[in-house]
Write a protein that binds this DNA or RNA. Structure first.
Length: 598
RNA sequence: GGUCCCGUAGUUCAAUGGAUAGAAUAGAAGUUUCCUAAACUUUAGAUGCAGGUUCGAUUCCUGCCGGGACCA
């Protein structure tokens, strides 16, 4: 049986105590994990509630009688933990002892690492961002980057060793389209000669390719060709396809151009990554993994995992697993996406042997990753079972999906600039920045602007599609990073005045808001655990907002600096200090910084 | 055609099968001699439809309606 220990989280202690009491009272065996414990709803007396229904039936007792016996037993067995209980219908409401909260604050108020767990030697790989090198990043990439980075941090906080990776989709027909258009129309333009950020410059030629293709197709259709044939026969399309063949053949001029244009794109991406704080421990390049993928397909063919059609294309039959047949190599021998993903999975396994390999990729690829995992399992890849597709929903506009062709794509760099500008405008409006240096102001605008965007994109459950309305831009009031940052800045202001002499031991009771805050703080480690299990930064965002909101109510109601008694002052300083620490940790896990003043 | 996902206040989001479905925003009404009003307080407003399982369903099952994605 699991012992109750002092620094175990409260909710776990209640579960364990309940499990023990059930055994002592009725010889009823129920594991702590199966006992439902919630926070007590505010309209009832108590702090935590044990939901009794699940064991009412096997014990053949009325909920009231069971609740009263259990409550009594819990009180007697854990006098330091519970002081009172009441039973309403099937709910046993427990009141936590005052001393428990005071001990907790005394023990943890100065713990800068509160909520973080020690390393335990398990390795998690998280692949995210994964851009194509033919155009700049957009809002959807930002959701991806923020999610991947944040989930890595959340795993780290829960004691895992993290490897952040990125696969650059640096080869294929899409790159060739940009290259052809650049050859045709650029007249040698470079990022240096134009002053345009490299990823945008290359993206511009990708767009030009599309425009030129459309024009050529229209001409061919006008001369009697079908739309479908025209798209294949258009000279610019044929040129792009020829270029892909030349690339695969290693033709020096094509390779040189490819390297040059990709280097422009990487320089552009790096600038954006630096600004948003995305970083990677290891970057893979598709151009390096697709050949390995083809080898593995060949091996799989020998093993009988794959089968070859008469036309030479290679397939896997997954009908027995409830899926379809899926192509893994084209009839001309070229690689499909799946081919290189197999190569990448094997390479990751060889290099890192991670216990879990997370792919942060949009939900349009759900089927693809189901197939990838199955293929890896059938190929006998040791880490295949650890493959997990973290599937997130698209970011949509009120009018629907962002579409390149309709020019409705929200560019990443643009939206970052807009957010920071908006942060600057609002900050000036507030007029509270006396004594800030120019650098400090600059930093504050970035902190608020980027924080706002990150919070906005992370506060929604990753699995769900979300809507972004560029007209309304992003609010800096309500459920936002700004709200949390503001609470933090107000606490820091108090702590600057009052200093750090807050280590004293406190006696006496807690007012409702003092207790609510302490209780919320106590939940933080459990919240981080939940966020990790659900791979959802939104859990952390929601918690941070909840804590900041409770603190703001507390702040409006009670004075810290002019507390009624010296004991109250120490108590409130401990609460304030710990609230600041937890708010900072929570926002940092979302990639959001906190300002000392704002 | 097949597979999968999603429908909650005007809007954007919550709710491991549990108590009277929470927030935010927009709306209405208030709060500045006192630690930062980017704040606080009060107020009104929602589970697509029809069945089923259950002591109890936003949650699980079936059908329908509506939206989306993927596979050819």
């Amino acid at each position: 049986m699991q012992p109750i220990c002092g620094n175990m989280e409260l909710i776990s202690q209640i579960r364990t105590a309940t499990s023990q009491a059930l055994m002592a009272l009725y010889q009823h065996e129920l594991s702590a994990a199966d006992i439902l414990v919630n926070e007590t709803k505010p309209e009832f007396e108590g702090d935590y509630t044990v939901v009794l229904f699940s064991f009412v039936k096997p014990l053949k007792k009325s909920p009231e009688a069971l609740g009263n016996q259990l409550g009594q037993a819990l009180l007697e067995a854990n006098p330091g933990l519970f002081t009172a209980f009441n039973v309403i219908k099937g709910f046993l409401n427990l009141t936590i002892a005052n001393g428990y909260w005071l001990d907790f604050l005394h023990r943890e108020h100065d713990n800068q690492a509160f909520g973080r767990r020690p390393r335990m030697g398990k390795k998690v790989m998280i692949e995210y961002s994964s851009p194509n090198t033919n155009k700049p990043l957009h809002l959807g990439h930002l959701r991806n980057n923020f999610l991947g980075w944040s989930i890595a941090e959340i795993y780290k906080a829960n004691g895992y060793d993290i490897v952040k990776t990125c696969i650059a989709n640096d080869r294929g027909i899409h790159i060739c389209k940009s290259m052809i258009a650049w050859q045709l129309f650029a007249g040698g333009a470079t990022p240096e000669s134009t002053g345009i950020k490299g990823d945008h410059l290359v993206g511009d030629y990708y767009v030009l390719f599309g425009a030129e293709l459309k024009k050529q197709v229209a001409e061919l259709v006008a001369s009697g060709m079908t739309q479908e044939t025209a798209e294949k026969e258009a000279p610019i399309m044929k040129a792009a396809q020829q270029m892909l063949v030349d690339w695969e053949a290693g033709q020096p001029e094509v390779i040189a151009l490819w390297k040059k244009m990709n280097s422009w794109v990487y320089a552009g991406f790096d600038a954006t990554y630096r600004r948003i704080g995305s970083d990677f421990d290891k970057v893979y390049y598709e151009s390096n993994t697709y050949l390995l993928g083809k080898e593995l397909v060949e091996q799989g063919l020998q093993k009988g995992v794959f089968e070859k059609e008469a036309d030479g294309s290679i397939w896997i039959d997954l009908t027995a697993d409830g899926l379809d047949r899926k192509i893994v190599q084209r009839k001309d021998g070229t690689a499909v996406y799946m081919t290189q993903d197999i190569g990448l999975a094997v390479r990751k396994n060889d290099e890192y042997h991670s216990d879990l390999s997370v792919y942060v990729v949009g939900d349009e690829q759900n089927y693809h990753f189901k197939v990838l995992k199955l293929i890896c399992q059938k190929l006998g890849l040791p880490s295949a079972d650890g493959i997990f597709h973290l599937s997130y929903g698209m970011v949509e506009l009120p009018t629907g999906r962002m579409k390149t062709r309709e020019g409705t794509v929200v560019d990443a760099d643009d939206i970052l600039d807009e957010m920071v500008t908006e942060a600057e405008r609002k900050t000036r409006e507030q007029g509270k920045t006396d004594g800030f240096t120019l650098d400090e102001l600059e930093e504050l605008y970035e902190t608020i602007g980027l924080g706002g965007l990150k919070f906005f994109l992370l506060r929604v459950d990753p699995k769900k599609r979300m809507v972004f309305n560029p007209e309304e831009s992003i609010d800096l009031h309500g459920y936002t990073a700004t709200f949390v940052q503001y609470a933090y800045a107000r606490i820091r202001s108090i702590l600057r005045k009052e200093g750090d002499a807050i280590a004293g031991t406190v006696t006496g009771g807690l007012l409702p808001l003092e207790k609510a805050l302490t209780s919320t703080l106590e939940r933080f480690p459990a919240v981080l655990d939940q966020a990790c299990q659900e791979m959802s930064p939104s859990v952390v965002a929601s918690y941070a907002f909840d804590l900041a909101k409770t603190y703001n109510s507390f702040y409006a109601e009670h004075s810290v600096g002019n507390a009624e008694t010296p004991d109250k002052k120490i108590l409130r300083l401990q609460i304030a200090r710990m609230t600041a620490t937890v708010l900072r940790t929570a926002l940092n896990l979302l990639g959001i910084r906190v300002p000392e003043r704002m």
